[in-house]
Amino acid sequence: MYNEAIIFFAAAVRTSTPLLIAALGLLYGSRAGIRNIGAEGMMLIGAIVGVAGSYYTGNPWVGALLASLSGALTSLIFAFLVVTAGAYPPVCGTAINLFGLGVSTVLARVIFGMNTTMPIIASFSKINVPLLSKLPVLGPILFQQNPLVYVTIIILPMIHYVLFKTELGLKIRAVGENPKACETVGINVCSIRYGTIVYGGFMCGLAGAYVSMALLSFFTENMIAGRGFIALAVLTVGNLNPLGALGAALLFGAGEAVQYRLQVSGTGVPYQFAMMIPYAMTLLALSGIFKKPVKSSASNGIPTMKNRGD
């Protein structure tokens, strides 16, 4: 029983990590007043670019870096549409999702052909951290994981620190609440929003690479399967707070791990029901069942008041 639990929690950490990476990325943009619901599309692009990068170079790290950059590049389109052109963010996010699904599918067929067998790529495999992995309980859960989990553990406190302890973080928080006020004290609202959106794209690309190179080690069409939207739910349940996002991601990751366990355990429950769990949790989370004070930044508007005459 003890071993079962350990294995389950280790699996939960593994499945929650991509949700957390994406949520930590979307967090700054949401704080700055622009929520990018195109996470799913950017993750898909990251997933294929990561696999392709690793396939050509033989190095998963190069793949992950390229995946992140591809996410950032995609989010630049979103940033241009929303911040510069003043388009309505949810519509642009939807466009990014459709774009991501199409582009990733086309890229996969162009690079790997239409054949059913995917080539073997260099992916992120489990690495035991010296000493720490020998700890009881925590060792097998946290420190016998793939390297991207460790990267996430390291950047989480950094993201928290930047948001709450630096001038940049204060600006990001303020821009989301009252962009006009920020303009009057000389903050460039547009560049803050561009920066946070592009950073969010970078992280979503990385999260996509995690799915195709750490959780699995190949690409299939539409393989993100809603994780981008679940990451948005993680953000909401986590109250736009990095530590809250950690808790929420673990919860959703556990849901996904339960689903896998149920599928293989042969309980007689049709597997379709098991597969619903993460999505059902997302719906429940967004309907306010968790009774968290759902925080959202006060502004969702278009920033610049310059020469507008209002």
Partner: peptide, 26 residues
């Protein structure tokens, strides 16, 4: 119409956008 951010503290509002001696740290 005041250009203040209600969810932040008074001091955070006042120094918003200014550089501190410990920049980039607050």
């Amino acid at each position: 119409h005041f250009m203040l951010i209600p969810s932040l503290t008074a001091v955070e509002n006042v120094i918003l956008g200014m550089k501190s001696a410990k920049s980039p740290r607050l």
